[in-house]
């Protein structure tokens, strides 16, 4: 990519420092949230903020007492992973077709798919609500699964399309010459080559679904509600719930943070060694 075709011999000293500063800045809110979750409510609001304090588990106990955390976590896992698998199942054949057998309408089809993301969701809230009501999908995991799949589908198709475009067509052609069926071509040749791309697309889709708050707050209430609804229940118009809100938020992001960390290594190694460039 480099215009000069070579990488500089020595990285300037300020680059790692800058990287550290940015990393700390980005991580600081999460660190502060974690710290606040172990404070009492008075310590949480005190100015100047107290850095040294006796940690308490009171907030976590309260949060556990008040809500069914396990149900929220299960719903979040079900909708985010379920919708990602569904979206991939639809998007892989679509992206394959568009990347390797483009027609003159392919570019405008891609743009049209993306255009569905351009409308603010609140504009279709009432029709969606009525549709969900009629179909009996209000407050169900199935309902969220469907809507998240549809929301993420355009992005997933776009990302996979760009990854598939990077795979040299000659490899697939060689397979075809050797008598591979389109199915074999897709599953035995293309997918193994595009694993890192599919993994990062999947991870992005999981994270987007995990954090989606508009539809989950509007279409679910208790049985189908994911962790975003769990956090929302601790924000308060009157009274101080900062420490409890921090505890709830940490509990809500913990699972996805762990998944992110774990898959990060695989992703990086996958991208470094497996990518076809």
């Amino acid at each position: 990519m480099s215009a000069h075709g070579s990488t500089p011999q020595k990285t300037p000293r300020w680059i790692p420092i800058l990287a550290w500063v940015i990393a700390i800045l980005v991580f600081f809110p999460i660190f502060w949230m974690a710290l606040t979750s172990f404070k009492t409510e008075t310590e949480a609001i005190s100015t100047p903020p107290s850095l040294f304090f006796t940690p308490t588990m009171e907030n976590y106990n309260d949060v556990f007492d008040r809500s069914n955390y396990a149900r929220f976590v299960w719903n979040s896992i079900a909708v985010s992973f379920g919708s990602t698998l569904l979206a991939l199942a639809f998007a892989i054949p679509a992206a394959y077709a568009m990347a390797f057998f483009p027609t003159k309408r392919t570019p405008s089809t891609l743009l049209w798919m993306l255009s569905t993301k351009m409308m603010p969701p609140v504009g279709v809230l009432i029709p969606m609500y009525l549709l969900f009501k009629t179909l009996g999908l209000l407050d169900t995991v199935t309902g969220l699964l469907i809507i998240y799949t549809l929301i993420n589908l355009p992005i997933v198709v776009w990302m996979l399309y760009t990854y598939f475009k990077d795979v040299p067509g000659e490899i697939l052609e060689a397979g075809r010459v050797d008598g591979a069926t389109p199915m074999q071509e897709l599953f035995l040749l293309l997918l193994p080559l595009a694993v890192p791309g599919i993994a990062s697309t999947g991870l992005l889709s999981v994270i987007l679904s995990w954090n989606e708050a508009f539809w989950s707050l509007n279409l679910t209430s208790s049985q189908g509600a994911p962790l975003t609804a769990f956090i929302a229940s601790f924000s308060s118009p009157q009274g101080l719930f900062w420490a409890k809100l921090s505890a709830a938020s940490l509990m809500a992001i913990a699972p996805i943070l762990v998944v992110g960390w774990m898959s990060q290594r695989q992703l990086v190694s996958g991208l470094t060694f497996g990518a076809v460039k």
Binding site: S67, Y129, N218, S221, A232, S233, F234
Partner: peptide, 21 residues
């Protein structure tokens, strides 16, 4: 009893949508 606890403005919007429909 099943509790749905929401922020005031979100609750107002939820309830209005639910009751009106």
């Amino acid at each position: 009893l099943d509790w749905v606890v929401l922020e005031e403005n979100v609750l107002r919007q939820r309830l209005t949508t639910d009751i009106a429909t």
